[in-house]
Amino acid sequence: MTIVAGCDVGSLTSKAVIMQNNRIIGSSIIKSKPRPGDSAEAAFAEALAAAGLAAEQMAYCIGTGYGREKINFVDEVVSEITCHGKGARWMLPTAETVIDIGGQDCKTMKIDKNGNVGRFSANDKCASGTGRFLEVMAKVLNIGIHELGGLSQKARNPVTLASTCTVWAQADIIKFINSGVPLEDIGAGINSAMAARVAILVNAVKPEGDIFMTGGVAKNIGVVATLEKLIGKRIKRARKADPQIAGALGAALIAMEKTS
């Protein structure tokens, strides 16, 4: 059976997926290194090890993500917007609207039944509404980024950030910490600010049908729950795989199409 791979080099994390017969047989998520080529090699090696395979056994490999042009071992590169559409449809076969929050950008897209992207909208040149925003805020709170989502559920009086600008919001948070505001309330405020920013993009593509979220932020329940309230629709959860690997998965799916 043909084995293919997809590699997604993002600004914060790099992911790789190995697929055979439409099934994921190996995957990885690593923290991105300064050089995109090094990130790709490391993520690919880890996914290969998980699958117990060697690079030579790959029939086709597609690269994606901001560092896609620097991956040496791929046969072709495809934009991450296209890959996330494909990956999302595989994870949720009824998905029609996809929200992808990556490390340094945020995209929303409409997809057809084949996972092909139709209309899409992306944030413009600002860290607000991206994974980087959450990373910076978690650092200020001195917690892990994965802990941020849970704070929303414990919050009693969530704070409101005066600005969604990453720099100004940081200053706001320091002020709240110094005023003795509980960590949960600050965390919930951060998640809400993030969701409010993303909601603007989501509404821009007029979400329809089942909505699915990809990227690392899809695992932040605080952001997802607030976003659901703001757009007035439920966002379906990923069950078949980690939503963070959707880009690499989509790349592998396109690689599979190329070999079929």
């Binding site: 901001y66 495809v78 934009s79 991450e80 917007i81 296209t82 494909k86 449809r89 595989w90 076969p93 950008d105 057809d112 039944k113 084949n114 996972g115 092909n116 992207v117 139709g118 899409f120 992306a122 413009d124 040149k125 799916l253 396109i254 199409e257």
Partner: peptide
């Protein structure tokens, strides 16, 4: 001009046109 950001959007757009032209090639 922020070339990296522009390139991502342009590439995705061209892939969108491609998928419309060849829908059978892009089946999930």
């Amino acid at each position: 001009i922020d070339a990296g950001r522009m390139k991502l959007r342009i590439n995705a757009f061209l892939e969108r046109i491609d998928a419309r032209k060849n829908p059978q090639r892009r089946r999930a």
